[in-house]
Amino acid sequence: MDWREVYGVFALMNLALCLPVHLWVASLSRRRGAPPSSRSPDPVTDARPAAPIAIFPVMLAGFALEGFVLSAILVHMVPLMGAVGAGSLGMLVPTLFGPSQVASRLLNLIFGGRLSQTLLALISAGLLTFGALALLAGAPSAPGLVAFAILFGLGSGLASIVGGTLPLELFGRAGYGARLGWITAARQVSAALAPFLFAVMMARLSIKGAIAGTIATAVASLLCFGSIAFWQLRQKAAAAAAPA
């Protein structure tokens, strides 16, 4: 099949398989109503005071900016490799991205329980930033391209996890579904705009200028999560200084 026929198959699968499943699940939730509120207390999420509401838009902005960076680079991965002069390496580099995603999730499974989700969000944004920096500074050399693919894949795999765990750590279980919906919506909107805007940047600025723009966006995401980490440190310091 050519690429148009492949996309036609994907569209048909969404309509014939995915849509009926979503409609069925939605009908179940409507018939059963809200789930019972009685549950066993969680010593982690229930004992922790919820973060102030002002933290939520900062977290939302961090995830939206991350979504922009990921979508801009991944959608344009193949033409981007050609534009930076990767040559034959342009076929190898994207294949490293998926295994790196899986590796980050395995590492998080093994070691992530010892770290706060805010720190993991910082690490994720930092990996995306340094991955894009490796692409800007290292291309078209093989070490630079490989470092880009691995760092970017690690950051992407971690980002998909902390998108669900960070709001739980900050705000607890109450209203978790609604907050997760907002995060998903912010990511999807920014991801939808990113390929078009990145293409415009490549055409108007240059390849390096477009990559530099994604680096600036990744740094902005890093600053959002960093401000949340700073707030948490201040909270811990205030709690330690308070009289017993």
Rank of each mutant, 00 (worst) to 15 (best):
E5V: 10
V9Y: 12
L12Q: 09
N14A: 11
L15W: 11
L15I: 15
L19P: 12
H22Q: 12
H22L: 14
L23P: 05
L28W: 02
L28E: 09
S29L: 13
R30S: 10
R30E: 08
R32W: 08
P35R: 15
S37K: 15
R39T: 11
S40H: 13
P41I: 12
D42L: 10
P43C: 03
D46C: 04
A47S: 15
P49C: 10
A50C: 10
A51S: 13
P52F: 00
I55S: 05
P57W: 02
V58Y: 04
L60E: 04
A61M: 14
A61C: 14
F63C: 05
L65Q: 09
E66S: 15
A72H: 05
I73Q: 02
I73S: 02
M77E: 05
V78S: 14
G82F: 00
G82A: 13
A83M: 12
V84H: 08
G90V: 06
M91V: 14
L92C: 00
L92A: 13
V93P: 02
L96F: 07
L96T: 07
S100A: 15
S104C: 07
R105A: 06
N108D: 15
G113C: 11
G113V: 09
T118I: 14
L120P: 03
L120D: 02
L122C: 15
I123W: 05
S124W: 02
G126D: 09
L127Y: 03
L128R: 05
L128N: 04
L128K: 00
L133M: 14
A134I: 06
A134Y: 02
L135W: 01
L136C: 06
L136F: 12
G138P: 05
P140G: 06
S141H: 03
P143C: 00
P143H: 00
L145N: 00
V146P: 11
A147S: 12
F152Q: 02
L154R: 09
L154Y: 05
G155Q: 04
G155M: 07
L158P: 03
S160P: 01
G163S: 07
G163N: 03
G163K: 07
G164F: 01
G164H: 01
T165H: 11
P167N: 10
E169F: 03
F171E: 05
G172R: 03
A178V: 14
A178I: 14
R179A: 04
G181H: 09
W182R: 13
T184M: 11
R187L: 12
Q188P: 07
L197N: 06
A199N: 08
M201P: 02
M202S: 06
K208R: 15
K208D: 07
I211D: 03
A212V: 03
T214A: 08
I215M: 08
A218K: 01
L223F: 09
C224R: 08
F225P: 06
G226H: 08
S227P: 07
S227L: 11
Q232K: 06
Q232I: 04
Q232V: 00
L233N: 04
Q235E: 11
K236L: 01
A237H: 02
A237R: 13
A238V: 05
A238S: 09
